[in-house]
Design a protein around this nucleic acid. Sequence first.
DNA 1: CAAACCTTGACATTTCCATGGTAAGGTGGC
DNA 2: GCCACCTTACCATGGAAATGTCAAGGTTTG
Lengths: 125, 125
Amino acid sequence: MTDALTINEAARTTGWSPRMLRYVERAGLLELRRSAGGYRLYGPAQLQRLRTLRELLARFEVGIAELGFARRLRNEPALARAIDEWFETEPARPESVAADDWLRWEQEKHQALLAAAETPRLEAA
Amino acid sequence: MTDALTINEAARTTGWSPRMLRYVERAGLLELRRSAGGYRLYGPAQLQRLRTLRELLARFEVGIAELGFARRLRNEPALARAIDEWFETEPARPESVAADDWLRWEQEKHQALLAAAETPRLEAA
DNA sequence: CAAACCTTGACATTTCCATGGTAAGGTGGC
DNA sequence: GCCACCTTACCATGGAAATGTCAAGGTTTG
C-alpha cells in the first residue's frame, strides 16, 4: 500500500473507530487519497491531523458538528459578519452577569445527566 | 411594570413563544432585567435584539446552539485559536475537492430523510 | 485463488436540540 | 384578597448528531 495505512490500521494508531474515520471524512474535516480500488489511504499527514482533531474535540468539549459550523463561519463571510454584528450590537442594558452563564448551563446539563446516571452522589463525605 | 413588557407580551410582539424566550435567555443570547419578584422584563432593546435574532437564525439556517457556539468562540480565545490552527494546518496533500462537500452532505441528509418519509418514490417512471 | 480487509448502505441506539405542555407555587395590580 | 400572569422544574416528542453493527459485494496480496 505504498507507505499509507488502510482504515483499520489508521483507526488503531489514532484512537478513532473505523466508523468514525469515515464519518470524519464525510463531515468534510479530512481529505484522503484513495487506492485504485477505492480504499481510503491514510498518510502521516492525515494521521497527524486525526490525532490533533481528537485532542481538539476532547480538550474543549466540542463536537464534529460544531467544527463543521466553525468551518462554515470561515467559508461564509456573510454569516460571520452577521453574527458578529448581532453580538456587537448593544448587549442590552441590564447591568447583568451572563458571560459564563452558558458555560454554567452546559455544566449543569452534564451534571444532571451524570447525577441521574450515577449512584446517588454524596459530595460531603 | 415601569415601561417593560413581561414574557407573554414580549412573546406576542416578537414572534417567539414564551417557552423559547426562556430558552434564548438560558442559552446566554439575551440578558434581561428582572422585577423585584423575579419576572423577566423586556425593554425595547431586548425586543429589538429578539427580532434581529429571529431574522439571523432564519436567514442563515442557524440554530440557537450554534449561536451559542459562536459566542463561545468569541469568549474563549484559546478555543478559537485552536480551531483556527487546526483548519490552517496543511489540509493534507490529496489534491482533493471537498470545500463544499459538507454542504452537499447536509443536502443529502435531507433528501434521504424526505425520500424515506414520502410515499415510495419512483424516479424512473 | 482464498483469506483478510475494504466499500457503501441501511438499521439501531444514545444523547442532544428545539419545542410544547403541565404542575406547584410566588407576584402584581386593582 | 383575587385572579391573571410569572417562575422554575419536569415530562414529552421529533429530528439530528455520534456511534455501533451487519450485509452484500469488491480489493489486496501471499
